[in-house]
Structures are given as structure tokens and as C-alpha cells.
Simulated scan of single mutants.
Amino acid sequence: MAGSGAESAGVKLIEWEDLQQELARLWSLSSALKKAKERKETLARKLESVIQERSEYLHQTNEIEEMRQKLEAQKLAMGDLLLRSKRTAENVKDQNEQLCFDIRLLLVASKMLSAAHQQLQEANKLLSGERGHGHLRNLQKMVHARQQDMVAQVSALYPVKASGEQSSGVKCDVNGTETGYAHPSNMSKPSQMSSFSILDLQLPALPLKKTSLFGDKKELQRSATALGYVAHAVLLIAAYLDVPLRYPLRFGGSRSYIHDYAPSTDLTSSDLASGSISVMGMTPKPAEFPLFLEGQDSTRATYAIFLLNKDIEQLLNYVGAQSLGPKHVLPNLKELMRIILAKEYIAM
């Protein structure tokens, strides 16, 4: 009954004879279990060590990857920097070559400047020497003095006076009021050409009227003589001043002519046939206009007087003065002589 109850409770009954074997088996199982636990613990420690090493390895691998990426970025930056450095080196080389070229040019310019400075010093020495600028000014004063002396003789030979003028040192206006010497800009313009005379002869009033066959021949001769006096005075003054006249004069006393090189606007076949115009070069010969009225067209004579006044205006401009007008031949001539005979002319 006991054996059946124990078996029903799940308890194994061992015989006494088998007890020792069972104990030995239990002891060996207990030893094996203890060894298994020890081995388990050993494996657990090894596994933890391996896991830790693996974790450290992964961490190091991540760090290495990050470092590799940083290295690649630095390589790219270094490549870009190297490229820019290469370009900069090329630019520096080009600038160095340009600088060397500029330096060579500067050296050449410096030598040229030094030579020019030396020439300038030599020129200054020449100017400051005995035959320098002062000598030239002295020569100019001597020439002006000589010109003044010769024009004074022309003024004495052909005196131009206003109506009522008493002496060559006093100038009167058209009303006979003494005005003294005056600058051209302050000189009053005469109202009539007849208020001035040359050697007591007056010029004909402009515009000239058409002469008739029964005109006063003595009056025509007097006007022609006066124009001849003016032409001769202008020729002499121009020669003394060494000024080539724009409208040359052919002096013939009371039968003088003045030339105009302006081409004619109407060219006829008769002009070509007469040879007054060169067909090949189309260079016209100067047209002559009479400085007298007897037997001449009044229009041509008027134009001749106008050209004569332009010559006097040219001489006035040469001495730094202005004309008093296109109809004031004698006043312009008188003003020209006054300026040349003034003391200031020598220092001009």
C-alpha cells in the first residue's frame, strides 16, 4: 500500500542497493551542473567583452568614417585652394612681367626726361646769355624803332588830317574839337569820309556815283591823286612792317590798281579763251580794280576802295588794333600811323 501511494504521488522509490549508485549519479550531475554554471558565467563574461569590443569597434568605425568625410572635404578645399593658388601665381607672374616692362619703359622715359631736362637747361643758358631772349627783345625794339622812324617819314610825306586839325600832335574830331591821341577803341568814328584829307586832298564819298561824260575832270583827278597817295602810303608801311598784303597793289600814282585773287562766280567762254583762267588747275588770275574814277565803272572803283581799306584793316590787325569801319579809309590810315608812332609800339 505504501509503495503504491508513493508512486501515485510521483516519488520514485529507490532500493537500498541502488542508493549508492543514485547518489554517485546525483553527485556527478551536481558537479556537471556547477561546471555548466561556471562555463555559462565564463561565456557570459566573454560575450559581454565581445559585445563591448564590438561596440567600441563600431564607434571607432563611425569616427573613422567621419574623419574620412572630413578628409575628403579638406582634400576638395585643398584642391580648390591649390587651383586658386595656381591662378594667383600665374597672375603674379603676368603682373611681374608687366611690372618689368613698365620699369623698362620708366627707365627709358627717365633717360629721355633727363636728356630733355639737360636740353632745357642748355636752352635756358642760351636764353639767359648774351645772345638770348634779352638780345632778341633788344633787336625787336631796334626793329620797331626803325619801323617807327620810317613810318614817321611816310606820315610826314603823306599827312592825314581831320578838318580843322592844326598839328600832327593833336587830333580833332569831325566837329573840330581837340581830342588828343586816343586808343582805337576810344577814337570817335567820323560821320563823313570828307572830314579827313591826305595832303589836303579828300577821297570821294562812298558809294561812288556814276560819272557822266561831262563830269568835273579836275575833281576826278584830285580823287585819283588822293587814292594814289593812300595806296603808296599803304605799300610803304606794309613793306616796312614786312606784311604781305592780302590784296596786292600795283602802284601807278593816280592810275593805281588793286588785285583781288577771289575766283569769279561767272566763268564765261571768253574768259577761257582769253587765258585769264588756267583750264587745268582752275587757278584764276587776279582781277584788277582801278583806284580812280575817270573812264571807269563806279562799281569797280568803289570795290577797289573797299579792298584798299581791307589792306589797311589787315595792317591794323597786325599791330593789335581794329578797323573803324569799311568806309573810313583815311581815319583807319591815320589811326595806323598813330599807333606805330606811339611810344608803346617800341615795347610791343
Rank of each mutant, 00 (worst) to 15 (best):
S49Q: 13
V243P: 01
V50H: 09
E56K: 07
L213E: 08
E344S: 13
A273N: 10
L272N: 01
S223Y: 10
D271V: 04
D311C: 15
E130W: 03
Q221P: 00
A239C: 07
Y229D: 03
D297K: 09
H328F: 05
T265H: 10
P263S: 13
S278Y: 05
P290G: 03
L113V: 07
P331K: 02
K125R: 15
I103T: 15
E72I: 14
Q119S: 11
K171N: 04
D311S: 12
Y240I: 15
S8G: 02
I305D: 03
E90L: 10
L83G: 06
R54D: 05
E130C: 05
Q296S: 08
A224T: 08
A44N: 09
N309Q: 10
T61F: 02
E15H: 09
F289M: 10
L83I: 13
M337P: 00
R300T: 02
G176C: 05
Y345T: 10
Q21D: 10
T211W: 04
Q148D: 01
I305A: 02
M142Q: 14
L330R: 07
A89Q: 14
A156V: 01
R146V: 08
S223D: 08
A2V: 12
G325P: 01
V11D: 00
L272Q: 04
A262D: 09
G215V: 08
K93R: 14
K209G: 12
G275M: 11
M193S: 14
N317G: 04
V154S: 02
G325A: 08
Q121P: 00
I312F: 01
G176D: 05
L81Q: 08
L126Y: 09
S197Q: 07
